[in-house]
Design a protein around this nucleic acid. Structure first.
Lengths: 370, 370
DNA sequence: CATGACCATGAATCCTGAT
DNA sequence: AATCAGGATTCATGGTCAT
């Protein structure tokens, strides 16, 4: 007798919404199989008159300290269990996002540190249109907090720096994101016209998360799928998703929603990349191809230093010999140096950075792969 | 033989900087005697090697011995102990603020909930000029988190709703505050011209905290006093402070700062408002429009001085006559003074800075340009 | 005296693949 | 597993100094 989601027998159930308790369902999926988890766990703490423990038992009152402690303890246990299940599912280089408010986020953050997740950033979703504090007894609660963490300190996590920089008009993306709450046409309604889910997240939030920390084709899992914002944006952006949701009503609403979503074309999915994505070119190739000749002189930025090209692609500058980077660093007394932008050659009286030669080689590689 | 800070024998040591470990010192003070605690504990940063900017300059990191902890467990124990000592000191209606980053704030937040503190808001300090992420490997860490909590759920905490609303141009104050980091003239320097403290907080941050959650005459304690921003702003605003600091160097710098507090007061107010880009509004317009009537009395920050409005938009305070800025500067013995934030008028028993009136005028200008 | 160029610096868990 | 080396990477602000 095998369980419904037997880990050994079944392939990953991609682009489906799985029914059931997320801890059980996650434990039945194969380990180390997911690239990213986005989790919007219940915040159900200290909510006047309608307080439930994660096991759905009702908390009578929180008037005294012992009751508070018992409800924190129950929430902590729930947090421990779903985080451990999530951790097991993640690939070694996988990452996790959690969103929460001051009611629960500190407990979640402490527990994920305890389990060995490595926090990369905490991100503030600054709501441009929050609900005011009607009674004027506190500050307007105008933000929620997200935590972005990798599975471990050693994880080589995905971060699309240039893509996020583009989203932010050319300036590197900050840890505070100003986005409106989900309403208008995006907000799912039930048959009575009421909101289908009390805390539906805006697609813009997930868009930024998925563009920034996944690649097309990655597997994104959401253990608290709700009405499926994570799945909707994942599908749109060409990522595969796995949703887990316990409530029938939310699953139904999410299924209908997914059916309406159209995947974006590949060109639309392409995002900005930086030099890091370019193939590496050894300086020796520049010499081999005769773009610079052995013995030719190079000039530093600012023209303070000179060096001479050698046949093996190294430089000599006085007593100093080594790579274009090493010689530049030594001459500048700097911890490191990018020789490609530091050194220049002279053509028709003009100083040209040797990086232009590297670019020429890369352009040829694009025209004739292999 | 009594200890240095014997709880039973001594009165509260107001407006002093106490030397020693904050846990021991707090435990020697009388219980239930403090209105507000503002705490800026070590963040437990876990930095690896050096970090260089793209121009190869080295980042001066926070590598001080006081921020070194051997493990999360060690940091948690430290947090438990100082929070318990702080809790004992607070009056039943007292409140606590803590500031931190993602390195420590989740652990601190969870522990204060465990101890029975009642979270009122988490507040995000959004830095207008954070240090960028030089390697492009994460989001710019552009904010820090504060937690505001009362001693217990039953506490009748202080919240000056209208004062904060005025500070915020007549709109309810939100849980995200945009403020620049502390630099320029406000940043304390040592004899070599280096920063006196690696993490000095801006006075504007404490200004907002103290205006919003204390009343004049309240006792404000800071167990991690550092170079004394909390004390400086408390003194400026007519609150009593108690500072505790372990490091001799920081205590010395803080003592000198407290002694010169009037001068820094005027400078800080002049520079921390950040309103230079706003259209200039002459004080006379406030009078012309009948927002303040000639003959009406204004009260200084801290309520130490009074002055009377004249029909031409000048003030008289005793023998001194002149603009709101000139009279404030003369009364404080300061080289300059921002009269807009220094002077307050009384409405329904509440002190409101006249800056609120200027903002009202600016709002109208925004609605109806020209 | 303005203006602009240039420089310094801030609570930071800040690289990656080949050998 | 540890070492080595290529080479990619920054925004806002305030102060100094030359023009």
């Amino acid at each position: 007798m095998t369980s419904r989601h037997d880990a050994s027998a079944r392939p990953l159930p991609l682009n489906q919404i799985l029914a059931g308790d997320c801890i059980e369902v996650m434990n039945a999926l194969p380990e180390a199989s997911v690239d990213l988890i986005f989790a919007d766990p219940p915040y159900n703490l200290q909510l006047r008159g309608d307080l439930h423990r994660p096991d759905n038992s009702r908390v009578d009152a929180v008037d005294d300290h012992w009751d508070q402690f018992s409800s924190f303890a129950a929430y902590d246990q729930f947090t421990r269990e779903w985080l451990a299940a999530a951790r097991r599912l993640l690939k070694p280089n996988g990452a996790l996002w959690v969103i929460g408010s001051y009611h629960n986020i500190f407990r979640v953050g402490a527990e994920l540190q305890n389990q060995g997740f490595w926090i990369l950033n905490d991100v503030v979703w600054r709501k441009s249109n929050p609900m005011p504090n009607f009674r004027g007894k506190r500050l307007t609660n105008a933000h929620e907090t997200l935590i972005w963490c990798s599975k471990s300190e050693a994880s080589k996590y995905t971060f699309n720096y240039e893509a996020l920089k583009s989203l932010n008009e050319g300036i590197q993306m900050r840890s505070d994101w100003v986005l409106p709450i989900c309403n208008g046409g995006e907000r799912l309604k039930d048959e009575h016209g009421d909101k289908a889910h009390p805390t539906q997240k805006p697609e813009a939030l997930l868009h930024r998360v998925l563009i920034g920390t996944t690649n097309p084709g990655d597997v994104v899992l959401d253990p608290f799928f709700g009405t499926g914002t994570t799945g909707a944006v994942a599908k749109m952006l060409g990522r595969d998703f796995i949703g887990i949701e316990r409530e029938d009503g939310y699953r139904d609403a999410a299924s209908k929603r997914m059916a309406r979503i159209r995947r974006l074309h590949a060109e639309a999915l392409a995002t900005s990349t930086g030099k890091r994505a370019e193939p590496r070119v050894p300086f020796g190739q520049v010499v081999e191809r005769g773009m610079l000749r052995p013995g030719e002189e190079l000039y530093s930025t600012g023209n303070r230093h000179k060096a001479r090209v050698r046949a093996d692609g190294s430089l000599t500058g006085g007593q100093i010999k080594g790579s274009i980077h090493q010689v530049g660093a030594r001459l500048e007394g700097a911890p490191s140096c990018n020789g490609w932008t530091y050194w220049h050659f002279k053509r028709e009286g003009k100083m040209i950075p040797i990086d232009a030669l590297r670019q020429q080689i890369r352009d040829e590689m694009d025209e004739r792969p292999n």
